[in-house]
Design a protein around this nucleic acid. Structure first.
Lengths: 160, 160
DNA sequence: CTGAAATAGGACTCCTAAGGTCGTATATCG
DNA sequence: CGATATACGACCTTAGGAGTCCTATTTCAG
């Protein structure tokens, strides 16, 4: 249904939270979980995964927690989502690496879907954790495509 | 996991198939199902939904089938997907209509995610059934965003 | 040195929705 | 009348998302 998982959501929230404390600021899983009303054990898993994948550095023990391992301006949403949820698969025809599906020969939408797939990825890759500020004045994160903007059917927005 | 449902996939395939026969050409569900190895009863459901929503016109009986009810140049992917799967929900924070989630006050990624959400929708809305040709020379269906293209971390594509 | 607080991580449950099937009704043509 | 269509509701199965539980292990504070 083309939606993000909550885990990915939580991951982005946590990274954004940590970026506000950066550099060198840290926060525990508990602190973040309480701040955003996220179930602690679930968030912990997400943070552990982010740590394993090099986005965070963890510190055990009392006063431990997580801190960013990289510059928030160089962590983009695509990486984070992939790190947590695995590769993005728009349709089973192809993965991130463009592997063919079993019936490539008789499929008439493969190529256009691949373009959409890449478009979404480019979009996600263009947004960094640092960009994720409510008050970011540079709010045009994307460009409206330049050609053939099919006019939406009238009356559709109301029911869907 | 940010993927399209198979139903939406099937719907796009079917519409594309019919657009190749347009105008006035028709095809039965059986014909389409066999051409693309899609389970017939499932495809039938999808086609019925598309007919109910005004994309197709159906004809009963022998030599019956479906034909496009609208110009394929004015049917975009977003409409089709919404018609089949319901509204696109990137995250539960908001639907197509921007309804607020229950804990809007303490969420630091709402706004950027909304932008991504709209970006994806604009992308989908910009592609019509008619655009969906393998050999379409106008292959730049989207524009790379103009600012802060965070460089992807090296070595990531290999494992994800 | 003991206990509290933190991360690490495997195993498990619950539940929704995607994906698909079945059966039946209805319309149309030969 | 029967073959071939669409129409549609009810049902089944399964994968994966969402979350819990339990048990290490590390670190600091008293």
């Amino acid at each position: 249904m083309l939606k993000l998982t909550k885990k990915a959501d939580y991951g982005l929230i946590a990274l954004k939270h940590l970026s506000l404390k950066a550099p060198e600021g840290s926060a525990s899983a508990k602190e973040i979980a309480e701040a955003y009303r996220i179930p602690l054990p679930l968030l912990a898993k997400v943070l552990q995964k982010l740590a394993r994948n090099g986005f965070l550095r963890s510190e055990h023990g009392t006063n431990g927690g997580y801190k960013l391992a990289r510059d928030p301006r160089q962590i983009n949403a695509l990486e984070v989502i992939r790190s947590i949820d695995g590769p993005i698969i728009l349709t089973s025809c192809f993965t991130d690496h463009g592997e063919p599906c079993d019936q490539t020969d008789h499929c008439n939408v493969r190529e256009p879907l691949r373009k959409i797939h890449e478009g979404i990825q480019d979009l996600l890759a263009s947004i960094t954790i640092a960009d994720m500020s409510e008050d970011n004045p540079d709010s045009r994160l994307y460009m409206i495509p330049t050609h053939s903007p099919a006019r939406p059917t009238q009356g559709f927005r109301g029911e869907l």
